[in-house]
Amino acid sequence: MFRKLSEDRIKVRISFEGEEFFVDTDQSVASALLAEGHQVFRSSVINNQPRGAFCMMGVCFDCLLEINGRPNQQACMVPVKENMVIKRQISSGNNPS
């Protein structure tokens, strides 16, 4: 869905769903994952449907991920950091009726 224009930037190591990547520093978790071709970030809380990044500016709260063990982190706002462990956020609550 996206491609990178250049490949000459400083890298940090992150993992997403157990898979390791080296990604450009100075960017958000969301853009790092999109650059690696990952679009599905979480499942929705009511209907368990796939969701990904949408607004990329902190408005929509659709890009929520589990980062370093903490759920509901805004992937488009949190900068990538060395050794970040990132997981899809699978709706952990009970779905309301």
């Binding site: 996206f2 990178k4 224009l5 990329m56």
Partner: peptide, 13 residues
């Protein structure tokens, strides 16, 4: 504008 943000911040197109 998300595409614009990705372009400016990460050089993604």
């Amino acid at each position: 504008t998300a595409a614009d943000v990705l372009y400016k911040t990460s050089g993604l197109v």
